[in-house]
Design a binder for these strands. Structure first.
Length: 666
RNA sequence: GGUCCGAUAGCUCAGUCGGUAGAGCAAAUGGCUUUUAACCAUUGGGUCGAAGGUUCGAGUCCUUCUCGGAUCACCA
């Protein structure tokens, strides 16, 4: 194994060397340069963090110094009055040097930060004493504190004791009497005026990002921008604080409503409860293959069988699939179940919960800026899938095709294949959902297809029939006016082995009805991209909702909803299927789909069927994508910006020509 | 996986037509006892992501690779 030397990790340069030398000199002055503790005072009632002192003392200061305009200094009288009171307040507090020390001959200023607030300290050569970390006593040697102070670097941790005062410019400060060295920053701090610009550094080394975001000053331009737009740009730290507030808000809401928090297995013998590729692992002692869970759903419903009427789990799920700005291989979901409730009750409940926890996260507001748009969490729309497509896709003809009859669905299917042919010839390999994010293009593409279907109704009907058998006949195709080109395209793209197995499976093995429903699912996903305001989409096709109950009104429709916000799918819920016999059959259907190529169809879990057979009350359940909700609340457009340590490809430094060659050969 | 964009000092960035590697901050040294992105003076700091190629000469042009971002496809 190649174990790097310390010097390889910290990479010596003029800056790290200077800091190392400072550390050695500090050791001579204070002894132990990494002391074990520092006790803070409690004038604020609790441990005096910098934030608490700032909040507490600012109130005192403001009693004497009325709000100053920018650049304005307090009068001598105001200052004397404030200091008369503040000087009585002795504090002991600690923090990181938020700026390089500003030394002016025989006195100096520096700001300390506790990661949230910053507090200025004033060190005067003749007043300050240093603490020896070994004896914990004041060092008698003359100017020890001043020497210590001059060995401090931007980013070091120190503890200070002294009294509060207001400077000539009106800033609250600590007049330092004793100073104690606590810890060294051996790396230079990031630019004090800029965030880490390189997204790779900020995500791979989140601690640097957090330091940079908590230590830096805002530039004048940024302050102006915030004033102008009224939107505060969150620091990295604030993003994750908001995330924590959202989660605790949700927890509290559920706890207050009688839910019990549970923990179910993360390593599971079967990866099921959702349609996704799992991560595989292996348990040596048990000698079994295990999968990281893709959803906790089936375990939570076993608990409903066991008698828990309201359960929730704040769970991390793992899906071995592609990464994108809204997909992470591990992501956090809040999943909960409520007995005797149906999908409508669940929508009401989830809406109330989301509103409440959004308020908690934002500090009261239900309106948040997201990019160019504003999300209003005070109004949740509810639309059936059909209504949503009508309203948001803007393709009235599509509606005609989709909803007139099954026959039309077949035609749509065939039409889609043929219009893809056009794309194929134009040089772009594209499938049905190849539509771009460009709404005009998307619309045009749908309209062209719809037009095409209308004009070629009879012919398409025949095409649909023709290709519903496993071995389409070229001659029959020709008789029906299908050109050789078209025939070959469809065979090549739909039937032939080397191409998309799933399409083949849909066409050959499944009924057109199911295929159409799958298309519907895809269309709603596409349509969802254009849905901005919080919207529950209901009435999903049953065939793509294997764990959900059918609607009492329509056996083909599932009592299921998905919540779309700003084009993102944020929640998925339904009336839980509790008939073990039907559940068994639905999962068997899914297994068949797996065999015919759909790798992400659901896996049958026999024990779950057994559990259901003991009886589960009628219930509704929901899974809420926490990461995505946090994205919306923090105006972040990548899921990796709301995950503290997102997964990254390992770094490969100093790759050589050989590496390049090897990579080429692979 | 496809397409496009990016990688230059510790940090943020500039680098024109292919012709000596730059600025601000940070660092070092000196000055300054209430500063506010402190200031003044001086100094040091570079594998220009990696490898190869074209050229008298490459940060700049070409090829390949690495990492990251955006976007599309797949998926929640």
């Amino acid at each position: 194994m190649n174990i790097p030397e310390y010097n390889e990790i910290i990479e010596p340069n003029d800056q790290t060397e200077a800091r190392r030398e400072h550390l050695e000199k500090l050791r001579e002055i204070v002894g132990n340069v990494y002391p074990n503790k520092f006790e803070r005072s409690k004038i604020t009632g609790e441990e005096d963090t910098i934030t608490r002192i700032v909040v507490f003392a600012t109130l005192v200061k403001n009693q004497h110094i009325s709000k100053l305009t920018e650049g304005e200094k307090p009068s001598d009288e105001q200052r004397e009055a404030a200091n008369a009171e503040l000087n009585q307040l002795r504090v002991r507090t600690a923090g990181r040097l938020a700026v390089p020390p500003r030394v002016m001959g025989k006195a100096a200023f520096v700001h300390l930060s506790d990661g949230v607030e910053r507090l200025q300290i004033y060190v005067r050569k003749q007043d300050a004493k240093a603490i020896n970390n070994d004896t914990r006593k004041i060092i008698e040697q003359e100017n020890a504190a001043w020497e210590l102070f001059n060995l401090l670097d931007h980013g070091d941790f120190i503890g200070v004791e002294g009294f509060l005062f207001v400077t000539k410019t009106g800033e609250l400060s600590v007049h330092v009497e004793t100073i104690q060295f606590l810890s060294k920053a051996r790396f230079p701090m990031p630019d004090k005026m800029h965030d880490i610009a390189d997204a790779e550094i900020s995500r791979r080394y989140r601690y640097i990002d957090l330091i940079a975001s908590s230590l830096r000053n805002k530039t004048d331009e940024e302050l102006e921008e915030e004033k102008r737009t009224g939107v505060k740009k969150l620091t990295t730290r604030e993003v994750f604080e908001r995330r924590a507030k959202l989660i605790s808000g949700m927890r509290r809401f559920l706890d207050d409503n009688g839910f019990i928090e549970v923990e179910t297995p993360i390593l599971t013998p079967k990866a099921t409860g959702a349609a996704a590729e799992p991560f595989e692992t292996y348990h040596n002692a048990l000698d079994i293959k295990l999968y990281a869970r893709i959803a906790p759903e089936l375990y939570l419903k076993r608990l409903m069988v066991g008698g828990f009427e309201k359960v929730y789990e704040l769970n991390r799920n793992f899906r071995n699939e592609g990464l994108s700005h809204k997909h992470s291989p591990e992501f956090t979901m809040l999943e909960f179940y409520c007995a005797y409730m149906d999908v409508n009750g669940m929508m009401d409940f989830a809406e109330a919960m989301i509103k409440e926890s959004v308020r908690k996260a934002t500090g009261g507001s239900l309106q948040v800026k997201y990019g160019e748009s504003e999300i209003d969490f005070s109004k949740f729309e509810r639309l059936t899938m059909k209504q949503a497509i009508l309203k948001y896709s803007g393709f009235p003809m599509l509606d005609e095709i989709l909803f007139e009859s099954l026959a039309n669905l077949r035609q749509l299917n065939a039409a889609l294949l043929l219009t893809d042919l056009g794309k194929m010839e134009a040089g772009t390999a594209a499938g049905f959902t190849s539509a771009t994010s460009d709404q005009e293009l998307l619309k045009k593409s749908f309209e062209q297809r719809a037009e095409f279907v209308k004009e070629n109704k009879n012919r398409l009907w025949k095409i649909a029939e023709l290709f519903s058998v496993s071995e389409p006949d070229k001659n029959i195709a020709e008789e029906n006016g299908i050109t050789e080109n078209e025939f070959e395209f469809i065979v090549r793209n739909i039937i032939s082995e080397e191409n998309d197995e799933r399409k083949k499976a849909y066409i050959i093995e499944k009924s057109f009805e199911d295929y159409a429903e799958n298309i519907l699912g895809k269309i709603i996903q596409q349509t969802g991209k254009t849905i901005m305001k919080p919207t529950f989409i209901t009435d999903y096709p049953k065939s793509i909702s294997p764990l959900s109950k059918a609607s009492p009104e329509n056996p083909n429709v599932a009592e299921r909803f998905e919540l779309f916000i700003c084009g993102m799918e944020c929640a998925n819920g339904f009336s839980e299927l509790n008939d073990p016999q039907e559940q068994y059959e639905r999962l068997i259907d899914q297994m068949k789909e797996r065999e015919t190529g759909d790798e992400e169809a659901m896996v049958l879990d026999e024990d779950y069927i057994r559990a259901l057979s003991y009886g589960m009350p009628p219930a509704a359940g929901i899974g809420i994508g926490i990461d995505r909700l946090v994205m919306l609340l923090t105006n972040k457009h990548s899921i990796r910006d709301v995950i503290l340590f997102p997964h990254m490809r390992p770094e490969k430094k100093n790759s050589t020509a050989d590496d390049a060659k090897n990579a080429e050969e692979i």
